[in-house]
């Protein structure tokens, strides 16, 4: 498969997953709002802080109230991490690989993109936010269904899986991090019934509440972190995402699982075994935030080696060999 095509398909997949995760991010806060009597700004400001783009936000808006934050994270065309921008990038990538994906998938990307453009979309996000963001999540779930059911599970398919799983692992770690870093300091809630509500909201936003209860029954911060990081079976848990990514990577390279030829397989395999043989106690010892920070660093490293290995446009080997030292 062409390197350029592999690059586009991988990024299309990442952008679509990212769009869904922003919707999930927003959804946590919408859930919280129903249960907690927080001030508007008090509740929405953390969401902007965690994006790392608070300066950009301030350049456009006076106050981090719900309407402004939703507009910024959802519709802002010149903010590259808005849902709209992610979908635009996904669709730009999809356009360059239309001949690789199925028509049904292309049409769904199109439909997804135009969801945000239809008349009244912005009003819906304000007046019926829950329905609106559910619709966005559904649009991506539908896409995944079409990917699974209408496209041959060959190399291109596995590049999409690889992109989505790495993106999802990253986003899950971020959602968990937000909870710890931003919501926890509102210290009055620690140990109160509200604490429980917050953790439930977090689980709900990752569609994890029901699956979590089957395993742990009662909600404690430690078990929630354990579930979202270490669970091998839950589709949004980091460990599960990495196992899937690793499987697809090995299908792409043709090497056996558990072995490696290239750097990508080595980095990803290393991170996987670290998760396989670690536990929540070790995380607590290190500190959750620090742990998640390191995890994100490793994920970045993996993404970079993927780029080097598969996408970077290289010269012909015969031409290269003249100047190279080895």
């Amino acid at each position: 498969m062409l390197s350029r095509v592999a690059n586009s398909i991988y990024w299309m997949s990442r952008y679509l997953e990212r769009a869904e995760n922003i919707a999930r991010f927003i959804d946590v806060n919408l859930h919280l709002k129903l249960d907690l009597n927080m001030g508007d700004v008090e509740q929405w400001d953390p969401l902007i802080k965690v994006t790392g783009d608070a300066e950009v936000f301030k350049a456009h808006y006076a106050e981090a109230n719900q309407n402004n934050v939703l507009e910024f994270l959802t519709f802002k065309p010149d903010y590259p991490s808005s849902i709209y921008s992610c979908l635009r990038s996904a669709r730009e990538n999809a356009k360059t690989i239309r001949e690789v994906i199925s028509s049904e998938m292309w049409e769904q990307v199109n439909h997804f993109y135009f969801l945000l453009q239809q008349p009244g979309a912005q009003e819906d996000s304000i007046n019926r936010p829950h329905e609106f963001y559910t619709q966005i999540k559904r649009a991506h779930q539908m896409f995944i269904g079409l990917w699974e059911g209408t496209m041959s599970h060959g190399e291109a398919w596995h590049f999409m899986s690889l992109g989505r799983m790495l993106e999802r692992a990253d986003e899950t770690s971020r959602i968990l991090d937000v909870k710890y870093f931003i919501l926890l300091p509102t210290i009055v809630y620690v140990g109160s019934p509200y604490e429980n509500i917050q953790w439930s909201a977090l689980l709900k936003s990752t569609s994890a509440l029901e699956m979590y209860r089957k395993k742990y029954q009662s909600i404690t911060p430690k078990s929630v972190a354990e579930f979202l990081i270490f669970d091998p079976d839950f589709p949004r848990a980091v460990r599960h995402c990495l196992a899937q990514a690793d499987y697809s990577l090995h299908r792409i390279t043709g090497t056996h699982l558990g072995t490696h030829l290239g750097e990508t397989e080595r980095h990803l395999g290393k991170l996987r075994s670290q998760l396989d043989f670690s536990n929540i106690e070790e995380v607590s010892k290190k500190g959750l935030h620090q742990y998640l920070d390191d995890l994100q660093g490793s994920l970045n490293e993996i993404a970079q080696t993927i780029h080097q290995t598969f996408f970077a446009l290289k010269g012909f080997p015969a031409q290269q060999s003249h100047g190279s030292s080895q």
């Binding site: 498969m1 062409l2 390197s3 592999a6 598969f310 996408f311 446009l313 290289k314 010269g315 012909f316």
Partner: peptide, 16 residues
């Protein structure tokens, strides 16, 4: 950008 010519033969740059 996907193509490269070597020894008067045209090649595509692929993941493999």
């Amino acid at each position: 950008q996907d193509l490269v010519v070597q020894d008067e033969t045209v090649y595509m740059r692929t993941t493999k």
